[in-house]
Nucleic acid binder design. Structure first.
Ligand SMILES: [Zn+2]
Length: 238
DNA sequence: CGCATTTGACCTGCGC
DNA sequence: GCGCAGGTCAAATGCG
């Protein structure tokens, strides 16, 4: 169902072929402005769709992981309301906490190329181990709170198996001190879940991600090269 | 120097 | 006990 060919059409005319009468230039400028505007609107639309899709996928993965990780031991207060009511979505959009062990699972959106596995969550961590796990190619990193041993909190961070830009962090324990980060930083780090795009205002990191993934995509490179060369060829016939 | 990270060794629980 | 997988330790290394 996915259209693989990008069908790139570079609407570009080499400058040395244009006639430079002012009227023509003005027309062209207007035309290009219009086109830019249209493209911008399309981009925001695509971004919105992309965001909501990603959020949806994240939710699906969380629910599946939750079921898979504790199929049997559902004790009191487990997330039953999630299964019964499909209407409200916000209440476990971000973090799933299981009161059982003081173990908290949190999913964080991040750049797939970010190999550092460092999640800025307002606390300072000291990495003390990294292991490859059986059924996930990406390694799992182990952290202790840097106030240890006075603060016993640990966390594990591992990339999600089927969503490479989703990061699963498992916290265990509660901090006995305050977060070092100020309010603004925790806000931005928590705001990983994407909200609808305001027109004309893009999420820079997301745009950068998309650009990166396009740059790394061989199909895109190929299509781009073909589009460029065909355009040049076509214009060289004059 | 004083920290954090890296990384192989080591430990521990579990199924056979 | 043995082997495996996950979790931890600690010596070496890196960095400001
Ligand atoms: Zn702490």
């Amino acid at each position: 169902m996915v259209e693989t060919s990008l069908g790139i059409d570079l609407n570009v005319t080499p400058f040395h072929l244009t006639d430079d009468t002012p009227k023509n230039n003005e027309d062209k400028l207007n035309q290009i402005n219009l086109e830019n505007k249209k493209l911008k609107e399309m981009l925001t639309l695509v971004l919105d769709n992309h965001n909501s899709l990603q959020n949806h996928v994240s939710k699906l993965i969380r629910d599946r992981d939750l079921l898979a990780s504790s199929p049997n031991k559902r004790k009191s207060g487990e997330c039953y309301e999630c299964n019964t009511s499909g209407s409200t979505e916000n209440h476990h959009q971000r973090s799933l906490k299981r009161p059982n062990n003081g173990v908290k699972r949190v999913y964080t959106r991040t750049d797939p190329s970010d190999t550092s596995l460092v999640v800025k969550d307002g606390y300072q961590w000291r990495k003390y181990g990294q292991k490859v796990t059986r059924d996930n190619p990406s390694p799992r990193a182990y952290y202790k709170c840097s106030f240890a041993p006075s603060c016993p909190v640990k966390k594990k961070v591992q990339r999600s198996l089927d969503e490479p830009d989703l990061l699963l962090t498992i916290y265990e324990g509660e901090h006995n001190h305050k977060s070092t980060a100020n309010e603004h930083e925790t806000q931005t780090s928590k705001a990983r879940f994407n909200s609808p795009t305001e027109l004309g205002k893009f999420d820079d990191t997301l745009v950068e991600q998309m650009a990166n993934s396009l740059r790394r995509n061989p199909d895109f490179i190929e299509d781009l090269a073909e589009a460029i060369s065909s355009k040049i060829f076509e214009n060289d016939l004059f």
